[in-house]
């Protein structure tokens, strides 16, 4: 067997890729909301967390795994839509601090409510796939059934979102209302609905991400399950540029791989430090992100 396939480097790359697609998904969901409404959603981790509790809670009512996943995603759409209608609607055009503060408040309310209803005890989600690494010639190879599933799911979500935006009339309307709400309204696009839809999609993507994260045997589902992942996802989105979905995914995957090496060769405590360093350095070099085309702000 080729020794390169079972080397430490290869296993780090593959492990990093598995984490990286998750960061990329979180970054993508942040970009979706940012592009459509100009708001950085700090509750982007907590809203899907809540939806996942609702959906996966049905497991204890003898519902099987896949229907629960579907219900979770629908709950995610609902949470996103309701949040946009009730909380966010009044915040458009306000100083940029206002939505940040409101969404941070929503984050702690959701985490508090989830802990009050379902307790802070980690809840293990049944994992439909094995997490044991594949063996090549008796040596572990950095992938398992579950991580392959994780990567395939993430790529599928990315492809679905991309084709929705690129190839459908709905996607065109979504892009138009983000680009120029007034002209779109003039041309008959229901801009309000498009904004709601943007939040629904974003929370739906977030719910898929949360299920992937919480299916990990070591974390389980907790009210704070997405806090750390959100931080990495935000770093990925900021490094890539909040305007760029492709940038979000690429930098999410790159950061995942870099951090896997850091965790393996240094210390697990250093992971978040290096992530912070990447963020600080990249923001100093390019404050609007590496993949954003225009960096000039209109006055």
């Amino acid at each position: 067997m080729d020794p390169i396939l079972t080397s430490r480097i290869m296993s780090d790359v593959l492990g990093g890729l598995t984490n990286g697609v998750v960061y990329g998904l979180v970054a993508l969901s942040l970009v979706l909301v940012w592009r459509s409404t100009g708001i950085l959603n700090f509750a982007q981790g907590a809203m899907p967390m809540f939806a996942t509790y609702v959906g996966m809670g049905l497991l204890s009512y003898h519902l099987s795994y896949w229907p629960c996943v579907a219900i979770s995603i629908v709950a995610g759409f609902a949470v996103g839509g309701v949040t946009e209608r009730v909380l966010v609607r009044g915040l458009y055009g306000k100083p940029e601090i206002n939505p940040i503060v409101v969404m941070v408040g929503f984050l702690i309310v959701l985490e508090g409510a989830a802990a009050a209803i379902w307790s802070t005890k980690p809840r293990g989600l049944p994992n439909p796939f094995s997490s044991i690494d594949y063996q090549i010639g008796g040596k572990p190879f950095g992938l398992s059934d579950f991580s392959v599933f994780e990567i395939i799911t993430a790529v599928a979500v990315m492809v679905i979102i991309a084709s929705l935006f690129r190839f459908t009339k709905l996607g065109l309307q979504l892009r138009a209302s983000a680009l120029s709400p007034e002209v779109s309204r003039l041309l008959g696009v229901r801009v309000g609905r498009m904004l709601t839809l943007g939040w629904m999609l974003s929370t739906g993507v977030g719910t898929v991400t949360t299920i992937l994260v919480a299916s990990n045997y070591f974390t389980g589902l907790t009210p704070q399950v997405m806090d750390g992942v959100f931080a990495f996802g935000f770093i990925a989105a900021a490094v890539g540029g909040l305007d760029s979905p492709v940038g979000a995914i690429i930098s999410g995957i790159s950061i995942g791989i870099i951090l896997q090496f850091v965790g393996d060769y240094f210390n697990s405590n250093d992971i978040i430090l290096v992530a912070l360093l990447i963020l600080v350095v990249s923001l100093m070099v390019r404050p609007n992100g590496l993949f954003t085309r225009s960096s000039v702000r209109r006055v």
Binding site: F234, L276, L279
Partner: peptide
């Protein structure tokens, strides 16, 4: 010094988490 609201908020959040 070069960041606007949401970027700075996110960066300080990362610091708090780290």
């Amino acid at each position: 010094t070069r960041l606007r609201g949401p970027y700075l908020a996110g960066m300080t959040l990362a610091f708090a988490v780290a």
